[in-house]
Amino acid sequence: MDFASSPRFFRRGPKPLTRFLLCSVLSLTLLVGDARFGWLTPLREAGSVLLYPLQWLIRTPQALARRAEDFLTIQTDLVAQNHALQNRLLIAEARLQRQTDLQRENQTLRELSQLRLQPPQTSLLAEVLYTSRDPFTYKLIIDKGVQEGMKEGFPVVDARGLVGQVTRVQPLTAEVTLLIERNHPVPVFIQRTGLRAVVFGTGGGVEVRYLAAHADVQAGDLLVTSGIDGIYPAGLPVARVTRAEKDAGSPFVRVVCEPMAWIEHHRALLVLNEKAALPPRPEPAPVIVVKSRRNKSTSEE
């Protein structure tokens, strides 16, 4: 017996099919709007504020547990950790002294050669609130938003290298797209040779694409941001080459890399509060119209 099409005694609004079609059309529209055109930023912002109490609720027990853990740490552990940290501090300070020296030298040299001075670099410490449960995206949500001066495009690093960039900013939180997100490009150069390349995320890893087969790449090469995109400052370690395979059938060398940063195990991250102020892109050279028209007409024939 077909219950669904039997006469109904009670008014229950439109049929399920109608409602389903309405909802699916709505969600498909939203999908296309979000994926192709990015319409829904205001709605997302409103939603993120709505969800913030829930986020706070879920984080509080964890924070309490962490505090309890801190309280109960054994003294020997603390002493050992203190020693290790002091050693590291010593090394870092030695390096820093050298760096300030170099920086001063660099500045005078730049002044001498009338170059644009590099803006001072500031940074913002952010804590990871949660990772996206959606297995198709590689994103982190951090606890700094518009209120702390967060902007889209800020690079995010950890102690070992580049993690990604801020791609969506909400009033209290921000979304960081990781460098392993599929087709997420980072312009780099190979530190050993200075060869420029672009690292692409593959969805879970990174690789260098479009590097000519005769390029000089070896396993163990360090890839460092080149800074020519205006998003990432130059010199951040990005990835280390694990394998470079030359395939006779392809004009490109297959370079598999491993990200330097400890990408999936973070609690705290550093957001570099800096965007390189590049001069505007020069106009492309004018195309010779006559030639292109001729080409067009020949192709039409």
């Binding site: 389903f20 709007g33 979000d34 994926a35 939603g47 709505l50 969800l51 996206s132 449960r133 959606d134």
Partner: peptide
Amino acid sequence: MASASLFGQHALVFS
């Protein structure tokens, strides 16, 4: 919104 996925993805599936 919670899972930072594409807008409408879960909406379509749940409906």
